[in-house]
Every structure is written in structure tokens, then in C-alpha cells.
Amino acid sequence: MDKKKNKKIFNRINFKKSMNNAKENFIDILNLPKELSGNYSKITMIENNELLIEGETSVVDYYDNYIKIKCSNIFMQIDGYKLKIEELSNIELLVSGSIVNISFQNR
């Protein structure tokens, strides 16, 4: 019984993966922006004062001088002074303050 259940779960995961791949392929063919697939985050910066992340995000660590954000495929570490999350919604996250360093880490 357990084997059957596991098979079903694996099938679902495979189906999801194949659907995602199909979506990406379709976007590639039509030369559309990659963030439309929903698997990627789009990062926009205005000098070193504002950082906008569009896509699924969640906050991992949050301090005055350090913020760690989980994007769809990567972790993002922001170092700076007087960092502040100005907006937080399902689609975007806006960080303001003086940003000194941004580093990325694969999940």
C-alpha cells in the first residue's frame, strides 16, 4: 500500500516538474520575460537605496543591518544600515535604507 502511495506522490511531483518545464520552454520560444513563468524572482535596484524583489519571497532573518530573504531559487543576503522593509505583499518586497552589500546563495 505504501509503495502505491509513494508512486502516486512521485507521479504528481514529476507531473508538476514537467508542467514547469513546458511553461519555461513556451516562454523561451516566444522570447517572453522569464519572470512570467513564476519560477524566478525579478530584482530591481535604485542606486543603493531601494531594492524591489518581485516574485515569491519570504523573510528569513531581519535585523537593522542585515536581511536574509528567500527568493524562489536563491537566498539573498543584504547588508547595510537602517534597513527597513517598506512594503510586503504576496507579489513583492521592497527594502529601503543604505545597502552596502548583496550576496546570493543557492538553495
Partner: peptide, 24 residues
């Protein structure tokens, strides 16, 4: 777990802004 608190706000459709850490 303030970070989790923020994430849960986002998940529950509670719109929050101007988030500042006062201290640890």
C-alpha cells in the same frame, strides 16, 4: 520569531509596511 511573524502576515493577506527592527 519575528521573521516568521512577517511571513505569516504575508501569507494571511495582512498588508504590513514600514517594518523596522527596534532591537533584537
Amino acid at each position: 520569531f519575528t521573521e516568521r511573524y512577517i511571513n505569516l502576515c504575508r501569507i494571511n493577506n495582512v498588508s504590513v509596511w514600514d517594518i523596522v527592527t527596534k532591537s533584537n
